[in-house]
Simulated assay, not measured.
Amino acid sequence: MTDTLPTVIVLASGRGERFVASGGTGSKLQALLAGKAVLAHTLAHVQASGLPWRLEDAGHPGMGDSIAAAVRNTPDAAGWMILPGDLPLVRASTLRQVAEALGGETQAAQPFFRGERGHPVGFARANRDALMALEGNLGAAPVLKALRAAGKVADIEVDDVGIVTDIDTLEALARAEALLGRL
């Protein structure tokens, strides 16, 4: 392995249908938030974390397909952290916190904000085959569910509203803009 920390997989293959249905035009990831594209905000936080990362934007049919492709394309990763590209407020420190929670008996780590589950969800390298077998729209939920049932998931309470602030609609974009002004 080339790194001891997990690789952040930034998912940017979605069609953004809810965003367009809400009145948005074009890609939600290119929508402007404080004068900068949503995806640019997300990538800036990922880069600031110092973790290795990969942008998965090849237009796969579902989130599971995107995750599987990214895992296949990062064969030397120590693990993976799944981060949708539409989470522009997630903090670099939160990314590091989730990454550092992986190891030993902990095969996955998921952050919570005030009781609400969020992203990124981290997976240890032992989950490589299960992640590469994913397909469809469920993402990594089946892998996380199995690990949770086995007691191998660390739940991490964080003070980071960014883990649950995804941009799916114009209304969500406006909420993120308001939050950004207060952070």
Rank of each mutant, 00 (worst) to 15 (best):
M1V: 09
T2E: 14
T2N: 06
D3Y: 03
T7Y: 11
L11W: 01
G14E: 14
G16L: 09
R18H: 05
A21Q: 13
S22L: 05
K28V: 08
A31Y: 08
A31D: 01
L32Y: 01
A34S: 08
A34V: 02
G35R: 08
K36E: 15
A37G: 12
A37Y: 06
A40E: 15
H41A: 01
H41T: 08
T42M: 06
T42H: 11
L43Y: 13
A44L: 10
V46M: 02
A48Q: 14
S49V: 15
P52Q: 04
W53T: 15
E56D: 12
A58V: 09
G59S: 02
H60D: 14
G62E: 01
M63D: 14
V71G: 02
N73Q: 12
N73W: 01
T74F: 00
T74P: 10
D76N: 13
A78V: 07
M81T: 07
P84F: 13
G85V: 10
G85D: 14
P88M: 09
S93N: 04
L95P: 00
A99C: 06
A101S: 13
L102Y: 05
G103L: 10
G103W: 00
G103N: 00
A109Y: 11
P111Y: 05
F112K: 15
G115E: 13
V121H: 03
V121Q: 07
A124L: 04
A124G: 05
A124S: 07
A126R: 05
A126P: 01
N127D: 00
N127G: 04
R128Q: 06
D129K: 12
L134P: 02
L134G: 00
L138I: 14
P142C: 02
V143S: 03
K152P: 08
V153I: 14
V153E: 11
V153M: 01
I156M: 09
D159I: 13
I163R: 01
I163C: 03
E177A: 10
L180F: 09
R182I: 06
R182A: 05
L183R: 12
